[in-house]
Amino acid sequence: MDQDLDLMLRVRAGDSASFEELLRRYRVPLVSYFRRMLRDPALAEDLAQEAFLRVYKARARYRPDARFTTWLYRIATNLALNAIRDRKEISPAGGNESSDGEAELLPVVDSKPTVEQLLIESHRVWLIRDAIQALPENQRIAVILHKYQELDYGQIAKILGVSVSAVKSLFFRAYESLRVRLEPLLKGGLI
């Protein structure tokens, strides 16, 4: 049996040490996931905390019918999407996606890095982050979940509620956009 799934079943049975172990295993991946999905690091941590809280609260209802990571990232993805949509409601001018969730290839916010941001991450990483965060929601989720969180297409399909071939198509379109956006790095200008 999947080790995480086993840990979650122990949490369900009342073993708080197993929850600690899940926290230890997924603190970095979850925080990274939210920080890749959103631009605000403080909000990303708040949402990662909320995701752990939801896992804990839902322990009694947990059913091991899917891999633990599928369940965990479904919770996380819903939280991230709600946060993104809430922000758009607050500032509709900041949004650049059409009603079907597809975005134009425009940065979500001003794409110039601040001095602080550049101190934290290199200019190259900043460009990569900017390119990924400018992707439409579903493409962004597919790329981040597959490339960084190491979920397979089947898991991503379950999380997004689409077919596996639709995920492959999302992934392809995302890479097409990234190829254009990251051209300066790919051509060796900044590499």
Binding site: R27, V28, V31, E45
Partner: peptide, 19 residues
């Protein structure tokens, strides 16, 4: 290229806040 964006560590208070 995407691999250059490495995992991001949470702040030191993160675990305590979750608990």
């Amino acid at each position: 290229l995407l691999e250059e964006w490495t995992p991001l560590e949470p702040s030191p208070s993160f675990d305590a806040r979750v608990r």
